[in-house]
Amino acid sequence: MAVPVIELRGITRRFVLGDSVVKAVDGIDLDIGPGEYLSIMGPSGSGKSSLLNLVALLDRPSSGSYRFEGRDVTALDDDELAALRRDSIGFIFQFFHLVPRLTAAANVELPLTLAGVAPAERRERVATMLAAMDLADRAHHRPAELSGGQRQRVAIARAMIAEPRLLLADEPTGNLDSHSGAQVVELLEGLQQDRGITLIVVTHDAAIGRRAQRRLRLVDGRVESDERG
């Protein structure tokens, strides 16, 4: 078997809230292979988002080890983690998190700008990506001028522009109507199949969660079930 994209061993994440310590993630072991489509479900407070933040390299575990593409990332400093996120991981958020003053094209361009890609190449790649997301005619609109579904597609375009190998979606349909939501899910699944990327979707919408090939269910920061097929 190929090297797992994600290899978690005994990962915990504790938060101190006043006098009490909350274990948001409580000793999870998890291997996710390249090209897998995984959904993470569970009730509110079960640690779904905390786990995703850890996988996303946005947060550091309180204990345990994490190998990303075979590389131990627990000891990396903030800037090394930022570079890894920039080059290898795409994010999609429930609230889109588009920069309101920037056009759709400029939002999609941001990761390339951060990576220092030359302007001409940036523009070309952004145009191609927007066309692939069926947003070519919306390139110069600001987020406020776009529908929810369009905004999330801009966010997906931004997540994919740097050609990451891992795509993480945190409640990607949580703020969309069912029609737009279905469109977004189909788009993500298409990307996973066509480009062979690893896709992890956090959701509490069972209908969406069921579509994944592998389904993880968390309760109280622990893996309750891990189903395939």
Partner: peptide, 16 residues
């Protein structure tokens, strides 16, 4: 805040 968080999430370094 959200914009800063987003920039960091998509790879902006502290210095950026």
């Amino acid at each position: 805040r959200a914009e800063i968080g987003l920039m960091k999430a998509i790879g902006a370094r502290t210095g950026d």
